[in-house]
Amino acid sequence: MTGRTTALGCAALLTAAVGLAAWLEPRSEAWRGRRAQADSFLLTLLGDGRRLFANHFFVKADVYLHSGFYPSIFDQARSACEHGLGQEQEPDPRAEGGQQAHDHRVHEGHENHAAEAHEHHDDHNFPGPPRDWIDRLSRHFRVTEHTHLAGAQTEAEILPWLRLAAEFDPHQVEFYTVAAYWLRSRLGKVDQAEAFLRRGLRVNPNSEEILFELGRLAWENRKDAARARNLWSAAEHAWHARFGAVDETNRVSLRRILAHRAQLEEETGNVDEAIRYWTRVRELSPHPEAIEQRLATLRQRLPAAH
């Protein structure tokens, strides 16, 4: 075979390959159909099953927070049977009172549903006395001491699970907000927290919770009041766009946004605005008397401010 024939053969093969590719491409797109719209490889692979994994990883983060001391679903069920579930804890009035006790709870992760049962068992002396000799023996081989991660180095251990949870279910905004809390408040990684929240916002545009967290980050970590205001205003709009009217299921989230905004205005000396926001908070609060006291104090400051 001469060199010319080889070159011609190669050119013919190349042309055939490019032609085939051009012919196949639109068909491949048509075949992929809805798969092409899948937002991730995991969605295509696991479908809705990825949410199970995501929730598992989120619980895993909570398990890590307690150094492996965690009740199984059977212990949780037993606890529920013995003590009854659904005992809603009374909200702490201080949370809206500007003390930020709510915001700075050490285990913000406990706000999530996964940890509710854990909190519950905690109150009822998990794991309880051993039932038999096997139970007694087995306690030497598992974690029976309730400790928490402490210090930046160990607290960071929960983050891979939160990150994985967000990878598996990017539409669960809780994963971003909880991770951001730990990153900015406990580990001093404000940039990382912001980047993660923004990533969450890209997948969940108009999420009032992520906007709210971004606002907190802007105010509490960067002391950027203007940006925090914008973000909380956006969060409030997003809340209204999503829920419209206030009811028992969404009351808390709006109250949180307004309370933080009120606190910001109070701290930056915008007493009029602070009063306006606290007044709105009072309407949503189960403990309006605590807010009323605060409003009274602010009203006293009003003439001086003017």
């Binding site: 150094s67 492996g68 096997i134 081989f141 598992r142 974690v143 001491e145």
Partner: peptide, 15 residues
Amino acid sequence: HLELFDVRDLMIHEH
């Protein structure tokens, strides 16, 4: 009770 022999949590969490 094979779970008796699983001390992974003790290792992971440095107990």
